[in-house]
């Protein structure tokens, strides 16, 4: 019969926990220059954060707002609201993703084109 807990279990749990914590500590720091809104994996809108006016747009039920050079998901029709939970995006590499509505907002820094992009 299977044991409740073995040494191998401890190693598995520790490795997963530590790698998760380590990745969480790794925070993006570069100044964000451009925000890219993607719908169904395709680029929908590209916004220059330094020069843009405040605005609000709705795509696939996701309300994306931009205030004071910060872009964020204001509200969404999805059940989990992970995209809203991502908060205000300012740093290069930060992102807010709504999987049920297939919408994402990503920030890229100076010079780098679209580091996280794939053509969907």
């Amino acid at each position: 019969m299977k044991k409740l807990f073995t040494r191998a279990d401890l190693i598995i749990a520790a490795v997963a926990l530590l790698s998760g914590l380590a990745l969480l500590c790794f925070k993006p720091s570069g100044e964000g220059e451009t925000a890219i809104i993607r719908v169904d994996g395709k680029e929908y809108k590209r916004i220059d954060l330094q020069s843009t006016e405040n605005f609000e747009i709705t795509v696939n039920g996701v309300v994306i707002a931009c205030e004071n050079k910060e872009i964020y998901v204001k509200s969404s029709t999805c059940p989990d609201k992970i995209c809203v939970g991502a908060g205000h995006l300012t740093k290069s590499g930060q992102s807010a993703v709504c999987v049920p509505n297939r919408v994402s907002v990503e920030i890229s820094g100076k010079g780098e084109g679209t580091p996280w992009a794939v053509t969907g």
Binding site: S19, G20, R38, K42, R102
Partner: peptide, 14 residues
């Protein structure tokens, strides 16, 4: 969603 950004949630899921 077609973007690598989804893996940003991986640390939390781990």
């Amino acid at each position: 969603v077609g973007t690598w950004a989804v893996f940003g949630y991986a640390p939390v899921l781990l």
